[in-house]
């Protein structure tokens, strides 16, 4: 993930470079990932009745 995530400098070159904290990226993905995982779990549980006979 990290290799393709880094950026080349903007052509203007006038801006100070920044560093995106890994913790912020992990937090952002967790914030959207947890509800998605909850939804997936609940749906798989419902869908499993299709194969439960």
């Amino acid at each position: 993930m990290s290799s393709s995530a880094s950026t080349t400098p903007a052509p203007t070159g006038s801006q100070q470079p920044t560093h995106t904290p890994t913790g912020l990226i992990a937090f952002a993905w967790t914030l959207v990932g947890v509800p998605l995982a909850y939804g997936l779990y609940q749906t798989v549980k419902t869908a499993s009745s299709l194969f439960g006979g």
Binding site: M1, S2, A5, S6, T7, T8, P9, A10, Q15, Q16, P17, T18, H19, T20, L24, I25, A28
Partner: peptide, 10 residues
Amino acid sequence: IARPGFNRWL
């Protein structure tokens, strides 16, 4: 506008 070095995976 993102500064150089911003991680696009955000």
